[in-house]
Design a protein around this nucleic acid. Structure first.
Lengths: 202, 202
DNA sequence: TGTACATCAGTGAACGCGCGTTCACTGATGTAC
DNA sequence: TGTACATCAGTGAACGCGCGTTCACTGATGTAC
C-alpha cells in the first residue's frame, strides 16, 4: 500500500508527464518551459525537481510514451492487414510510420531532437524501446529472408528503418521540400517494393 | 575597381566566413558565438553585424560552402569511376555521401540543424544548392529509367537521397546506434543495389 | 490514542549564465569645391 | 593639391531576455514512545 506521500508524488508525476506531453504535442520540444509546466500542472517550479532530476528526465519519459504509441500504431496497422505477403507487411509498416509522424509531428520530432541536444547517456529503457521497434520490423524481414544470419538481418532492418525514416524526415521538413503527402507514401513503397524481387542480397 | 571601404569589408567578410567555418568544423553549430567569432577574426562584435544581418546569415553562408564541397566530393568520386553502370554510379554517390558526412560530421550536421532551429525563410540560393545536389543524383537515375517522366524521376531521386541520408544520419548518431562504418556502406549498397533488377516501378 | 519530533515534499523568489543584438561614440575614407 | 564636410565602418560596453536550477523556508505526513 502506498503512503499518502508516495501517492501524492505519483499523482504529481503523472500530471507533469501529461502536461509535458500535451505541451510537446502542441508546441514541440522547444515549447517546454519549467514555469509553464508548473503552472499548467498547478504546482511550483521546485516541485518538478522533486519528482524529476531535471527537465530532460521528464522529456525522456514523454518520449518513451511516444515510442510506445508509435510501436502500437505500427502493430495495429499490420494486424488490420489480411495478408501473408511480407513485402506488403513491410510497406504497411513504412506507411504506418509516415502516418504516425504526420499526425504526431511535434512528439515524433522530439524523439530525435533530444538526442541531438543532450550530452548525457541515453537511458537503458530508451534503447530497449528503440530495439523493440526494430524487432517489429525484423520479424517480417526475417521471414522473407530466412537464410539470413542474425547480425545481417539486424543490419538490413536498420537500413530499411533508416531509409523510411529519412524519407519521412526530409519529407515533413516543409521549408525545404514541400513534397505532397501521397508522394511520400509512394517513395516509401518504391524503396520497399524491390525487396521480394531480389532474393540474393550481396 | 573596389574602393578601400568595399575592399576592407570584403576582407572582413571572408575572414568571418573562414572563422565561422573553422568553428563549425571543430565544434559544430552550437560552438558559434558572436564574441568568439569576433575575437578569432580580430574584429569587434559589432562589426559582424555590419557585414551580416545576423549570425544566421553567416551560418547560411558557411552551409552554402559545405553544400558545394559535398557536391564536389560526390562528383569527384563518380568521375574517378570507370563504368557506365548506373547502379554502380548511384551506389558510389551514396558512399561518397557517407564519406563526406563522416569526414565533415559537424559541418554536415549543421546543414540540417539550422533548418530545424530557424523560423525564417530558407534563402533562394540555398534551395538552389540543394536542387543541384539532387540533380547530380537524378542524372544516372534518369539514364537508368529513361521512360520516367520528369516529376516521377524527381520523386524517386528524393526518395533515394532521403534513404541514404536516413542511413547516414541514424548511423552516425552514436549514442543510439553504434553501427560500424562498413555496415553503413553495406546498408547503402543494399538499398541501392535493387534498382537495376526491378525495371517496373509501380 | 495523544504528544513531540523528524522528515521531506512543496513553495516561489532569486540566482546565474549564456548570449544575441544594439547603440552612442570615434575615426578612417570618400566627395565637393 | 588642399580643406571642409559627410558618410559609414568599426568599437565594445551595456542591454535585455529567456530560462534552468537552487535554496531557505513552511507545513503536511510519518514515526517513536
Amino acid at each position: 500500500m502506498m503512503s499518502k506521500v508516495e501517492e501524492k508524488r505519483n499523482v504529481l508525476r503523472k500530471r507533469l508527464v501529461k502536461v509535458a506531453e500535451d505541451t510537446i504535442i502542441a508546441d514541440g520540444l522547444s515549447g517546454i518551459r519549467a514555469r509553464d509546466l508548473a503552472s499548467a500542472a498547478e504546482c511550483s517550479v521546485g516541485a518538478i525537481y522533486n519528482v524529476f532530476g531535471d527537465l530532460t528526465d521528464l522529456i525522456l519519459v514523454v518520449n518513451g510514451r511516444t515510442f510506445k504509441r508509435l510501436g502500437a500504431h505500427v502493430v495495429d496497422q499490420v494486424e488490420a492487414l489480411d495478408t501473408q505477403d511480407e513485402v506488403t507487411i513491410l510497406t504497411t509498416m513504412g506507411h504506418a510510420y509516415l502516418e504516425f509522424a504526420e499526425k504526431n509531428q511535434n512528439a515524433w520530432a522530439a524523439l530525435f531532437e533530444v538526442e541531438m541536444t543532450t550530452d548525457q547517456e541515453v537511458p537503458e529503457w530508451y534503447l530497449t524501446e528503440m530495439r523493440k521497434l526494430l524487432e517489429i520490423i525484423a520479424a517480417p524481414l526475417g521471414r522473407l529472408f530466412p537464410e539470413l544470419e542474425q547480425n545481417r538481418l539486424f543490419m538490413f532492418t536498420r537500413a530499411l528503418f533508416s531509409s523510411v525514416h529519412g524519407i519521412v524526415l526530409l519529407g515533413l521538413e516543409k521549408r525545404v521540400s514541400a513534397v505532397p503527402r501521397d508522394h511520400l507514401r509512394d517513395m516509401i513503397s518504391f524503396v520497399l517494393n524491390n525487396l521480394n524481387k531480389n532474393p540474393q542480397i550481396s
